[in-house]
Structures are given as C-alpha cells and as structure tokens.
Design a protein around this nucleic acid. Structure first.
Lengths: 134, 134
DNA sequence: GTTATTGTACCAATGTTATAGTACAAGGGT
DNA sequence: ACCCTTGTACTATAACATTGGTACAATAAC
C-alpha cells in the first residue's frame, strides 16, 4: 500500500535505500506521525527483500528515534520529530546544503530547479491529504 | 585537479560513487572528449582510496566504451560520449535529492526550512553577480 | 637499451551486505 | 489459557567491497 521502492540493481545497499525511502516519506509528510509502517515480514515480501534487512532498518530508525516499535503490535512514526537543540542549527543546515550544491551544480541544475523539485514533493503530499474528489 | 568526490561515509560503494562522478563529469562536458583522466595511482591518492578501486572503475568505463585506455600513457574520454544525458538528468537530480532529504530531516529540519535557506541563497547569488562595490 | 610512467592482473585479508532459517519475547484477541 | 501477530535475536553462509601488496605489459622519453 504505502510501500516504498528499492532497486536491487542500484549498487547502493538495500538497507540504505530503504532507510532513505522511509525517512523521506516521513520528511515529506507521506507518512504522518502515528502512522503504522508495514510489518517487517510484509515489507520484506513486498520489496522482495529478506526480513532481516527490513528488521535492521527498523532497528536503526528506532535507535535514532524516528519510529517507535511495540512488539506484537507494529512500528509507528514518532509523534515528535527529534528536534535538534543545538544553537548552531542554522550553521548545520548551511553545512549540509553546501555539501550538496556542488552536486547539483555539476549536473547543471540551478538552485531554483532544486527548490521546484522540493516544492513539488511536498505539494503532492498535501494534495493527497486534502479531501479527494474522485 | 579536475578531481572528483567520493564520500566514505556514504553507504554507496566507493566504486559506484566514483563511476557515477566520472560519467557525470563527461555527460555535463566538464570532461571533454579526448581529455585525460587522472592516473589510477594519482586519483587513488587524491581520493584516499585504494588504487585497485580506481582501476576497476576505469576498467568498467573502458568496457562500456566511455573511455579509452592506452597502457603506459593514460586513460582518455572517448570521442563519442553516449548521449543519454538529458534523459538521466531528472533521475540524477532525484537521486541526489533522495540522499539529501533524509540528512537534513534527521537533524529535525523540514523541507520548508531548506527551501527558505535555498531561496535566501539565490538572492545572495544575484547579489554576487551584481556589480560589486568593493 | 634503459628507465619511468601507465594500465592491468593477480593474491590474501578484512569487513560489509544479503540471504535463509530458527527461535524467542511481548502484546492483543479469543 | 491459548493463539496469532509483531519485533527481536541468533546462527550460518555466500557474495561483494575494500584494502594492501606485488608483479607484469605496453608505451614514451632519455
């Protein structure tokens, strides 16, 4: 249903692809706080991936407090995204962005292109959560 | 000089990062046909990576006819680069952003935060390109 | 011819990734 | 109490990634 995507042909490790996909889904609001993730076994079947791989991703997300797990019940998106308290927040953001800009620039993309892409990504989600008129 | 970038903290295999970086450099014209790539050993030193890893990337690029190698001379960009640039551009942007979003999300930043930061940055850019008064 | 430089081809060792399978622990429903 | 579902914890195995090292082959420069 809310399934994610991993590509076995991509040399990026499956666990890394999946963890990114889940974190992105949360960050973009496709997975809202309180939402239940698929079960370890179910997601393993859906993605044609070993259950251990999924379990390790869930464990990693649990360690970083992105999700909350209840044995026998399921795994859920945390209510409060881990707000970083650091006073250097702005500087941290700056640092990350500065690291990525050369990559965009190398492909000839402008900052505007990136902004548009990011906006599209969030607006799609809001459309989903709006009353549907199908 | 025209060195590339790989990130050992990125779970993506080094060889994959490097191959992608070189192909991108060629696709965007930063490396033009006929241009010589750094030597295997030199690039290994620059990137703090094993020479074998670089050598394998060069071999892979050679097999796919992206570069041409001459023993004792060097490795050069082929005359006719496979022109799949435009099609993969969007996918590449998507790929980079997929790596980008989880990073700042992990620090508690929202996509809106990033967009705002980027927008501020574009204004700065314009200021830079304006006649400077230093 | 000799030497330096370049790509190539090995080997061994270590760590990571992914799979398969089994078993256990905790919560909910009956 | 029992059962089902869930996450978790193991073991073992295979494949892949990375490193370090050594050696060889072809080319250019001397």
């Amino acid at each position: 249903m809310t399934s994610f995507r991993v590509d076995p042909k991509d040399p990026t490790p499956l666990y890394a692809q999946l963890e990114r996909a889940i974190r992105t889904a949360i960050a973009t609001g496709r997975l809202q706080p309180g939402a239940q993730l698929p079960t370890v076994r179910q997601l393993a079947v859906d993605l044609h991936v070993n259950a251990n791989t999924v379990a390790r991703v869930y464990a990693a997300l649990e360690r970083t407090e992105v999700v909350e797990t209840q044995r026998g019940v399921g795994t859920f998106v945390r209510a409060t995204p881990p707000a970083v308290v650091s006073e250097n927040r702005e500087r941290e953001l700056e640092r990350i962005i500065s690291r990525f800009i050369p990559e965009f620039a190398a492909l000839g993309f402008t900052i505007e292109d990136v902004i548009k892409h990011l906006q599209r990504r969030t607006k799609q989600e809001k459309a989903i959560h709006a009353p549907d008129r199908k």
